[in-house]
Design a protein around this nucleic acid. Structure first.
Lengths: 233, 233
DNA sequence: CGATCAGTTGACAATACTCAAATACTGTGG
DNA sequence: CCACAGTATTTGAGTATTGTCAACTGATCG
């Protein structure tokens, strides 16, 4: 039957996410029982800061941006989440509401896990609890790096660190591809498009990189690394 | 016997911390069995960023500062932890090393919980797992606010937000007391002492507050709140 | 009581933001 | 498939916030 196949494939998919890796088949079934698949069109708001959180999400397909915005309209991106990644867990465990906004960057298929059912499952499932703790701890580590960058590095340093990060992630040697529009990248790095544009030119002018649209070639990795450390010229 | 009394009081104390609240007496006993009490003198390093983490800590007495530092020596404080608060959990659950430094701000008595024993206890103890998840989620929320402040607010806005936070925390109406030296407060707010000093004067000059050493009187709460929102004059 | 450290103030420099305008892209409706 | 509208990106000129350096005062602690 179609539904059985669908359920089976969902169970298998869930078992492959880092959050639910290592869970017993029976528990995965339970999980898929409480999961609801929801779709969002590109540019649709998924939730807003301050909204009550009655559960959290897992990206099945598409990309989701988590961000904050100042009253003057300046945006700070916290995360871009893709397939297999969970988001919106904070209010599930710490009560209160979402601390930031979520919007679909592309047409998305998400899995929504309602709070109460999910908490019961966590309580019955030590492996799941440990996976969740690992996920939240990893995110704390990432935020620590972001605070470090915002407070202790200047824009060229943050940019250099990001380029090195991408290069490592993409495993393509010195060639890399920006994964966001430059406007969105500026917002991720805590600056504005004009400044980012100038800093990219500057890094190129000083021989660290070669820019070709969204493609970047690292021509002085050691120099970039030094910049990323001290954040200064 | 002295040791029995000591153990009993430790068990009771543990049961009163938010992390271990609601745990069964038997589990608290187990916990106190794996706990090691350690002391650090004022200004002693507890751990450094990059150190391997073989467990985490709970503050019994004293105050601990968690911070990062740039190669040029600028410091960014992430947290100040006091009695009952846990710190250093990230490497316990996300592997790898400490993302920041920890130093004793006063003579401290800490409780160290070794990783492996503790993880076993978490796995056997859903209430504990949920308390931990709540603690990490709350910290994610706090970091979100810090990133928001650093990226989207200017120094006067961050300062105003901090003053309002203190006023709420201290329940003393419009009177409040800075809980850190101004140098340390600057580091918590992501700025330097000179700038903080000027911004405090500015807030006073413009009629928002009255400064008397470490005592501050809020004289225009609505004005401060507006500043904290938009972060600008 | 002397030395070190915290806090304040002034003069200056620099990084990054604002505003504006020109150019290049993108996607959509005709 | 093209034209147009709306974005995205880049560059320029000017400004502003914040950091740097230095000097001075006052507090704190041996």
């Amino acid at each position: 039957m179609i539904d059985d196949n669908r359920d089976r494939s969902l169970v298998e998919w869930l078992g492959r996410t880092s959050l639910f890796a290592g869970m017993a088949e029976a528990h995965l079934r339970e999980l898929s029982g409480i999961a609801m698949v929801v779709s969002y069109r590109k540019r649709t708001t998924i939730f807003s800061a301050g909204d009550q959180g009655n559960g959290f999400y897992l990206v099945k397909e598409g990309k989701v941006k988590i961000y904050m915005i100042s009253p003057e309209g300046k945006e700070q991106i916290l995360h871009i989440f893709g397939s297999g990644e969970p988001f919106g867990e904070v209010p599930v465990f710490a009560g209160k509401s979402f601390p930031a906004h979520a919007v679909a960057l592309e047409d998305c298929r998400l899995i929504f896990l309602p709070r109460d059912d999910f908490v019961a499952l966590v309580a019955a499932n030590p492996a799941l609890a440990l996976n969740l703790l690992a996920a939240l701890a990893a995110r704390l580590r990432q935020f620590t790096k972001m605070i470090d960058a915002l407070s202790l590095k200047e824009v060229p340093g943050r940019l250099a660190a990001h380029l090195l990060f991408l290069s490592e992630k993409q495993l393509a040697g010195d060639n890399l591809q920006l994964e966001l529009s430059k406007t969105q990248l500026a917002s991720l790095l805590g600056t504005i498009p004009e400044t980012l544009s100038r800093m990219l030119s500057k890094l190129q002018r000083e021989g660290f990189i070669r820019i070709d649209g969204a493609k970047i070639l690292i021509s002085d990795r050691a120099g970039l690394a030094a910049l990323a450390e001290i954040g200064k010229f």
